[in-house]
């Protein structure tokens, strides 16, 4: 089949493969300036707890090299930079220039500098040599990647042997009653909040739809194993609203 005729989900819509990158870029260009505020409002601040959980579970230590892929406005990068110290290095990588700019300005203003690098890169073709990182994270980013299998294989490639990948992402709610309430919130309240705060209902409608189209916990775990990871597991947070997948390269 001709590459240009292939389609992929963009929320609940099907779009040509090459169109998804542009559309996702559009969404994040649109929300970049208010991304942090919206995250706080949308999750009632719980996203900070999910991220803290991820950081703590990473077991990162001074001197290590960390890739924060789809690092956006730099929440994880900031925490990792403090932990790896001056003898370590954190790379904030994102496909979206607007998000990287917001993240870089924010971290510099907060005094995080010297051990952080910023790069605009496509998750499906990482511009790093093999076996570079002790730890790689992608938080709330994988569902926006067009070819997830390719991105996971790339993440495996750039990890050092013994390295760990952590994927923090919205997932499938395991509690039926909560799932209903969550659906109502996602499709009725979330877009309206997006309009109210960021004046951008469509982008937040996409965010809600993209969460539903993302592979569930077991599927993503299998995708990680298929991408080459020697071991993978996952941890549900808040009944599966978010799941933290971990993969190890031995």
């Amino acid at each position: 089949m001709n590459q240009s005729k292939k389609t992929i989900d963009f929320g609940f819509s099907e779009v040509p493969l090459e169109e998804k990158v542009k559309r996702v870029k559009g969404v994040f260009d649109s929300v970049a300036g208010k991304y942090d505020v919206m995250n706080d409002v949308m999750s009632l601040g719980i996203h900070r707890l999910w991220k803290r959980h991820t950081i703590e579970l990473s077991g990162v230590r001074p001197g290590q090299t960390v890739l924060d892929l789809a690092g956006g406005t730099g929440d994880l990068t900031k925490a990792f930079a403090k932990r790896v110290g001056k003898s370590g290095r954190v790379v904030l990588a994102d496909i979206n220039e607007s998000m990287v700019r917001v993240g870089r300005d924010r971290l510099i203003n907060e005094g995080i500098a010297g051990n952080v690098e910023y790069t605009i890169t496509n998750a499906e073709a990482l511009a790093f040599p093999d076996n570079t990182f002790d730890l790689a994270t992608i938080a709330f980013g994988l569902r926006n990647v067009t070819n997830k299998d390719k991105a996971l294989a790339e993440l495996y490639r750039v990890l050092k042997p013994g390295g760990q990948l952590m994927v923090l992402e919205f997932s499938k709610v395991t509690q039926p009653l909560l799932a209903k309430a969550y659906d109502f919130y996602s499709f009725n309240i979330l877009p309206k909040m997006g309009k109210l705060i960021a004046d951008d209902e469509a982008s937040y409608q996409y965010l809600a739809e993209s969460i539903r189209m993302h592979p569930d916990q077991d599927t993503l775990k299998q995708m990680m194993l298929d991408a080459g990871f020697d071991k993978a597991d996952y941890l549900n947070m808040n009944e599966g609203i978010v799941a933290l997948h971990r993969g190890w390269k031995y």
Partner: peptide, 13 residues
């Protein structure tokens, strides 16, 4: 680290 003290629940190695 030069940024201060860090406390967490896990550590590699």
């Amino acid at each position: 680290t030069s940024y201060g003290v860090n406390v967490q629940n896990a550590l590699q190695g």
